[in-house]
Write a protein that binds this DNA or RNA. Structure first.
Length: 845
DNA sequence: AGCACGCCGACT
DNA sequence: GTCGGCGTGCTC
């Protein structure tokens, strides 16, 4: 029997029939995507890279990013519906999604973690459960008795009509943790009700403006108005001022644009109430405009035509030439060789070609100095992405990149997450910097590597810049894969500083040390100060002393959460843990034996500052480290003071090594070089070399030859010889041989696995099992450890480390990572190890 | 990450 | 006897 119909049913169009599903990225550390169903009538609203709101689990409402749209219904479960669409255009672009996937893969973390790190908090809608008094509730007629706590809540909620509280608020008000019970009970009694409140946290900056009501923009009407206000001098004043500032007749649009209300009300001669009266009477009308937090400079882009020196021009041309055949070029230029001008020139060229540019800098190098300089050249096309920015500002940069308003972004590590889709150039300045690598939390990414991958995806060129390139990077240029341009000449003809090593051991034996100063360093400081020149002293440890000790019983205060001694901070009069933040008052007497003989051992920036103030009372000493720059503008203040020569000596940690150009600094002192060299890590020498060269670069600029004094107990160490001659190549050759011999990057890849557990034996057992599982899956010699790190307990977790060394090859690496993940899962599935945390750090630094 | 369900100690 | 602690598992 035939079932064919010979009449045509109205053919449903394909679009009507399709049931769409969306795979979404939840901002949570979950290993996979979740599939939701698109409400039929909203099929045309799904945007890949757009945000949607979904119900996740029983209670949570989350916003997430659509990663894929398809028609395959999940087989094993019923998909829930997407509740709402937030965006009609992607907030995350396709190239970004591709990059984020690569990051999750490469750094062994989840897409959710990447998204979490990438999106400014304000772009992540937050779900807040709020409670409100039930509309039918009345205190008099309430039939249920209320507990004391319930009563308290009701009182707060009754304070004003429609007042609502978040759970966090409730917790604070009641000052207990188990407030859910109270809320539940109040809901059962119909006293309150609960609602989910999803709010877009980004709030645009709004300015109140006023303008003349349009019917007065006509001579006759205005004259009449003047006559009417003749008896109201205050209002007349305001009106006159307005007309003065806004040429209503000359420019029809001028009145429409209006004037900032604040400019009328804040004037001392004008009365704010007169302004309001005018508004009330309909003479002026008030309106809001959304303005940018980044002031749009009205001035046209200043054409700053600085000229490149001959060496700079040659270097720039070489870079451009190499870009013809290579995607990545290293610009190796000594400090002060003028790399920034070359960058600016290249950025300009890239912009002229219509592409976007990302310029990455380490956090401490992204100073107001450099931003101002770039602003002057690129004006409103420049976006700045700094970690100290507020979230609203970050969203503005994000949206500015999306809309095309910002063509160049200068930013720190996290700027690699911005939604570029048409990059033509990425600059990674100070590419060797370890601060490009994020340690905690996941994704543990290196912005330099991410930048290289992003450039690769978008067909952009990458320029890496450094005075002391990382061994890995230099190796690539040696292997011919990346281009190399060397810039040796210092800009402005200043020669390289003279470097002198001073033997602290010898001086100590001769009893000639003044605290931690050798006579050589001290007299040189005095000499420079007498010449009205400035001095930078580098000590890579903050605080006053790394620990204190009781002279009578030997007691040393330790952190109660970590396996470290507490550092003494004199100004705060505190003992502090640099790992978990625990702090306590400095004891007056030893809690173990009651002795008052507590002495400090070792030294940090604070002690150097203190000692110097005592030894050279005439000098104006300032300290710059994490402790003195925590407050918002203190960093700028310290820099400004030093620049204006209000201070003569700057004592600091790594902060003094980066991005600062001071013309008058003629001496740099490294107080304790040994503490930088002796570090249990294969990168110790590289780091030390870089640090010494970078600090030395601060000495002598603008024609003055500087001097560097390095204090060390062992001047014979091989590294000094290379530092003194500023011989990067020799350092590199020495280092690369070591790396090859011992199988370290760039010859091998390192993945460090850390097992954490509150119980030391459990941590050890879990690490042993993990090692076994790894060995079973990888080459035996690829797995090293487990071993407790030097600081074996942090924040109450005992640590065990396993190091995996792998061949560089991509396929090997990828396979190995999945093997490692498997091994981790095996351990985590064991009952005893459920509480263990296992963290993988790919390419640790 | 939260949040719910589920099994062992100090209280009405 | 219960309340409530957190350990374990799940979320489309």
């Amino acid at each position: 029997m035939s079932l064919t119909f010979d009449f045509a049913l109205p053919e449903p169009t394909a679009a009507d029939r399709v049931t769409l599903f969306a795979d979404v990225i939840l901002p949570l550390p979950l290993p996979k995507l979740y599939t939701y169903r698109v409400p039929f009538e909203l099929n045309d609203q799904v945007v890949i890279g757009g945000r949607v709101i979904v119900q996740f689990g029983a209670k949570k409402t989350l916003s997430c990013i659509v990663a894929a749209v398809h028609e395959t219904p999940p087989k094993l479960y019923q998909a829930k519906y997407i509740l709402e669409f937030i965006d009609d255009a992607p907030v995350v672009t396709q190239p970004q999604l591709k990059l984020f996937r690569w990051m999750a893969d490469y750094y062994m973390c989840t897409l959710g973690e990447v998204i979490n790190a990438a999106l400014p908090a304000a772009l992540k809608l937050s779900s807040e459960s709020r409670i409100q008094l039930h509309p039918a509730f009345s205190a008099e007629e309430n039939p249920y008795p209320l507990s004391e706590q319930e009563q308290k809540l009701v009182e707060v909620l009754s304070l004003e009509e429609g007042k609502s509280l978040t759970f966090t608020d409730v917790g604070e008000i009641l000052a207990i943790n188990s407030f859910h019970k109270v809320i539940k009970s109040l809901m059962q009694k119909d006293v309150i009700f609960l609602f989910e409140h999803l709010s877009d946290k980004y709030s645009p900056k709004v300015v109140k403006k006023v303008r003349l009501a349009h019917h007065f923009v006509e001579e006759a009407a205005l004259e009449e108005l003047f006559a009417r206000l003749a008896t109201k001098p205050k209002q007349l004043d305001v009106l006159m001022r307005y007309l003065q500032r806004v040429p209503v007749y000359q420019d029809v649009h001028a009145n429409h644009r209006g004037l900032e209300k604040a400019s009328l009300t804040s004037s001392p001669h004008l009365s704010p109430s007169a302004v309001n009266t005018l508004i009330k009477n309909g003479v002026l009308e008030q309106f809001d405009v959304i303005v940018s937090r980044f002031p749009l400079d009205d001035e046209p882009e200043a054409k700053i035509n600085f000229t490149l020196s001959e060496a700079q021009t040659a270097a720039r041309d070489s870079v451009l030439n190499l870009f013809g055949e290579k995607d990545i070029v290293l610009l190796h230029g000594v400090t002060g060789a003028g790399k920034t001008e070359i960058y600016i020139d290249l950025i300009r060229k890239a912009l002229d070609g219509g592409g976007q540019v990302l310029y990455l800098l380490p956090e401490i190098a992204l100073t107001a100095q450099i931003v101002t300089r770039l602003m002057r050249v690129f004006g409103t096309r420049l976006g700045v992405y700094h970690s100290k920015f507020s979230d609203n500002e970050r969203v503005e940069v994000w949206n500015g990149v999306l809309s095309g308003r910002f063509q160049v972004v200068v930013g720190v590590r996290s700027a690699v997450f911005l939604p570029f889709d048409n990059l033509s150039l990425i600059i990674v300045d100070e590419e060797h910097e370890s601060s490009y690598k994020q340690y905690e939390p996941a994704p543990r990414y290196n912005a330099r590597e991410v930048a290289l991958m992003m450039a690769n995806f978008q067909g952009a060129k990458t320029l890496l810049g450094s005075a002391t390139p990382s061994v890995e990077t230099y190796y690539q240029t040696r292997a011919g894969r990346w281009g190399l341009v060397t810039l040796t000449k210092r800009f402005g003809e200043a020669g390289l500083p003279e470097i002198e090593l001073v033997d602290t051991r010898k001086q100590r034996e001769a009893k000639k040390m003044h605290n931690h100063f050798t006579p050589e360093l001290l007299s040189e400081i005095e000499r420079k100060l007498a010449l009205k020149e400035q001095v930078i002293l580098f000590q890579n440890r903050r605080g006053y002393s790394p620990f204190i000790s009781c002279l009578d019983c030997g007691w040393i205060p330790k952190c109660k959460n970590c396996a470290v001694s507490l550092s003494y901070h004199k100004h705060a009069h505190e003992l502090r843990c640099h790992y978990c933040g625990y702090h306590d008052r400095m004891p007056v007497e030893c809690p173990a034996c009651g002795s008052r003989n507590l002495k400090t051992v070792g030294f940090g920036t604070e002690k150097i500052e203190d000692d110097l103030k005592v030894m050279l009372p005439a000098a104006n000493v300032q300290r710059m480290d994490l402790d003195t720059t925590r407050a918002k503008n203190s960093y700028q203040q310290i820099i400004a003071d030093f620049e204006n020569q209000a201070t003569n000596v700057l004592v600091g940690t790594q902060m003094v090594t980066k991005g600062l150009d001071f013309a008058n600094v003629s001496l740099v002192g490294i107080i304790n070089a040994d503490s930088i060299i002796h570090y249990p890590d294969f990168r110790a020498h590289e780091r030390a070399f870089q640090m010494f060269v970078q600090v030395s670069g601060r000495a002598g600029r603008k024609g003055k030859k500087g001097k560097v004094i390095i204090q060390t107990a062992d001047p014979q160490q091989v590294i000094f010889d290379k530092v003194i001659r500023n011989d990067y190549l020799e350092f590199y050759e020495y280092e690369i041989t070591q790396r090859r011999e011992y199988g370290f990057p760039p010859f091998m890849r390192v993945i460090r696995l850390t097992v954490k557990h509150v119980d030391q034996p459990v941590a050890e057992q879990a690490a042993i099992l993990l090692t076994q599982e790894l060995v079973a899956r990888l080459r035996r010699e690829a797995v090293l450890g487990p071993e407790a790190p030097y600081i074996f307990r942090i924040r109450n977790f005992y640590l065990q480390e396993i190091t995996v060394k792998l061949d560089r090859e991509h396929t090997v690496l990828k396979h190995a990572k999945s093997q490692i993940q498997e091994a981790i899962n095996v351990v985590k599935d064991q009952k005893d190890f459920k509480q263990a945390r296992i963290v993988a750090d790919v390419d640790p630094m």
